[in-house]
């Protein structure tokens, strides 16, 4: 008698094949009982399972392949669309740049013509001096010339630089004061000029009134602050103490200013201009006459952009 738990290895005859397997294992696994007849049926089921598994694998592979192909086609289409979009963007960017360059040229041309016209006005005033016998009239014409020139200089600087919207106000002040020294025939060794300006860029709207104010203050100092042979110094300082404000200081160490009349009608045109322009720009004017004359004007100004390096 064979023990129940003993493991027997016997030869199973199955069709034309012979397999050496553990009978107990086959019995336990339920694939077949050890009788040869039922082994044939179990083997059929094993093969069937394998075939089903293989078919499932193949179908899965085909399905996956189809999905990969579809996804690839979608990605290709998207890639093509993106490439075309990039080309269109580049083309429109180029078009915009071209348009911008044209507008810049046009704007430069306009500033150039404005400057030329202002220079013509200044020249006409200069020519009219010859017909003026009254020295006071000549002075008035010369002052008007300087005012027009100070405006022309802004337009000249605008078309001469890369930034058409803003001008370097420090550079502008240097040009303006050089013109005034030249117009009044002042020897720079007699009256020295110190200009201290920060990195301030102003738009045309702001630069024109500010330029006119500086023009009036420096002209006033050159004409009245110093006795004919006396030497001295004019200081110009422009800074932005806080955002949105500009402080302009024009000071001289000359003979000092007599108290300006309170009545606006009695003031000189220069002083009236300073008052009006300061009020227009919502600014304040402080005059100090302790040591020479010191005009301090604080104005509202739009935020100064950082200059491109």
């Amino acid at each position: 008698m064979i023990s129940r738990n003993a493991i027997h290895t016997r030869t199973i005859t199955c069709g034309c094949c012979r397999y050496g397997v553990s009978a107990a294992f086959l019995k336990r696994s339920g694939f077949c009982n050890v009788r040869g007849k039922s082994m044939h049926g179990s083997f059929f089921f094993v093969v069937l399972w394998i075939v089903v598994l293989l078919v499932a694998i193949v179908l899965g592979y085909l399905q996956q392949n189809r999905m990969v192909k579809r996804k690839t086609a979608e990605l290709r289409r998207e890639l093509f669309e993106r490439q075309m979009a990039e080309k269109e963007l580049l083309a429109s960017d180029q078009k915009l740049r071209q348009s911008l360059a044209e507008k810049e040229s046009l704007l430069k041309e306009i500033h150039h013509r404005v400057k030329n016209n202002l220079q013509i006005v200044s020249s006409l005033l200069y020519l009219q001096e010859d017909y003026m016998t009254d020295p006071k009239g000549v002075d008035i014409l010369r002052e008007s010339q300087n005012r027009v020139k100070s405006m022309a200089l802004i337009h000249e600087q605008l078309y001469g630089t890369a930034d058409l919207a803003k001008i370097d106000f420090g550079r502008y002040i240097e040009g303006l004061t050089a013109n005034l020294f030249d117009a009044y025939g002042i020897d720079p060794d007699r009256i020295r000029l110190n200009v201290r300006t920060g990195d301030i860029a102003l738009g045309v709207d702001m630069a024109v009134p500010c330029g006119l104010i500086i023009n009036e203050l420096v002209s006033n100092a050159l004409k009245h602050a110093f006795l004919p042979d006396a030497s001295g110094t004019i200081d110009i300082a422009i800074q932005t103490p806080d955002t949105g404000r500009i402080e302009m200081v024009v000071a001289d160490d000359g003979i000092g200013l007599t108290e300006p009349p309170a009545d606006a009608e009695k003031k000189s045109l220069g002083l009236r201009l300073i008052d009006t322009l300061t009020a227009q720009l919502d600014g304040t004017l402080v005059i100090n006459t302790e040591k020479g004359t010191r005009f301090s004007i604080t104005l509202n100004a739009p935020e100064q952009p950082e200059k491109e390096s």
Binding site: A73, R76, R77, F80, E81, M84, A85, E88
Partner: peptide, 18 residues
């Protein structure tokens, strides 16, 4: 047929869009 339709669809979309 699918490749043909994809190609036509792609170029049609681009010309329609831009």
């Amino acid at each position: 047929v699918r490749e043909g339709n994809h190609t036509v669809d792609t170029i049609k979309r681009v010309t329609q869009r831009f």
